[in-house]
Amino acid sequence: MSQLNNFTKGFIKENPVFVLLLGMCPTLGVTTSAVNGLGMGLATTFVLVMSNLAISLVANLIPDKVRIPGFIIIIASFVTMVDMSMAAYLPSLHESLGLFIPLIVVNCIVLGRAESYASKNKAMPSIIDGLGMGLGFAFALTLLGGTRELLGSGKFFNFAIFDEGYGMLIFVLAPGAFLALGYIIAIINKLRKA
């Protein structure tokens, strides 16, 4: 497929969260605000791009039977690097995202793309695939985070849009994540069928 297609498929047609239903744990877990969603999305994008690149370069050197452990080690190293860099330079975001940063290593999107795309394609397309999927993921997370933040506390990216007292608290709590995502996917399904 053309490289432009390769890049944009991650946003709508094959959006990892809304269409492929991958990477659910961080999607529900860190989207209490738009900033958190965006932060997690970008961190994951970095890991996706780097691991896609690395794996596309060394895929042929890794024997088939150990390819999963091999990929995992590579992905885990990039995750650790992101974890350390965030702790050093973005401490408050690091604190808000907490446990979910190391959990990027088990984000099905990362391993999934490595297995189904990067191991079978050259470096450049793999980078673009990683970028597209990662940014699509970031887009989904920011959308969900922004929705929950707005409905739950009246803020958007920490700007107060309306008074906190009018917010529906449930949306920043656990059940709200499920509800918000469910409705968003329902709307997207409707749009896709139209």
Binding site: V58, A59, N60, L61, I62, P63, D64, K65, V66, P69, G70, I73, I74, A76, S77, T80, M81, M84
Partner: peptide
């Protein structure tokens, strides 16, 4: 290019090298 064969020696060697490189980088 053809993939490296899944012999025991290859598997262990590759995993060892990958882990070494990864740990050093990290």
């Amino acid at each position: 290019a053809k993939k490296l064969e899944s012999t025991f020696r290859n598997m262990v060697l590759v995993l060892f090298v990958v882990t070494l490189v990864a740990s050093t980088a990290v």
